[in-house]
């Protein structure tokens, strides 16, 4: 359903506020179908925000965005979809290590990756990804 909407109605994200509304419904859907996922997202946010120089904001197309300084580490949509921008080398590395980590749902030919957080194990994978992105940004300076 999410993929269908993104594929055929993705252009509507440029209507101001519409993506935020869509994400609010994703959160509602998650509350009804997999409420524990919301707790995993809270735990991830809390953990990442415990690292120095990190902040959380609302992603421009809806969802929770976690940042290092002014750089985005990644964002999590209301359905638990984590999107993260890495370089090509890191992308190849993480995708080689875990088959559940995929090309970004819209920007396939880029450094973006997508990963669905569904349970406790996925939360740990997501945390490792955030850690990797964090270290990458720290080393870049």
């Amino acid at each position: 359903m999410f993929k269908f909407i993104i594929r055929y109605f993705g252009f509507l994200k440029f209507v101001p506020g519409l993506a935020l509304v869509f994400d609010a419904f994703l959160v509602l859907w998650t509350l009804m179908t997999n409420p524990a996922l919301l707790d995993h997202m809270d735990a991830l946010e809390k953990k990442v925000l415990s690292w120095p120089n990190t902040t959380s904001t609302i992603h421009k197309y809806g969802g929770l965005q976690l940042n290092y300084g002014k750089k985005e580490l990644g964002h999590i949509h209301g359905n638990g979809l984590l999107d993260m921008l890495l370089n090509r080398k890191l992308k190849a590395y993480v995708m080689g290590n875990d088959s559940k980590i995929k090309d970004h749902h819209s920007f396939k030919d880029s450094g973006w990756i997508s990963f669905y957080i569904k349970d406790e194990c996925d939360k740990q994978v997501a945390l490792n990804l955030f850690n990797l992105a964090y270290q990458w940004h720290v080393n870049k300076g």
Binding site: L20, V21, A24, F25, V27, L28, S56, T57, I58
Partner: peptide, 17 residues
């Protein structure tokens, strides 16, 4: 109601931040 819910939730998230 869907519109109200969405923007109340967005307001809560904005307010929290």
């Amino acid at each position: 109601s869907p519109l109200l819910f969405a923007f109340i939730l967005i307001g809560q998230v904005v307010g929290k931040a």
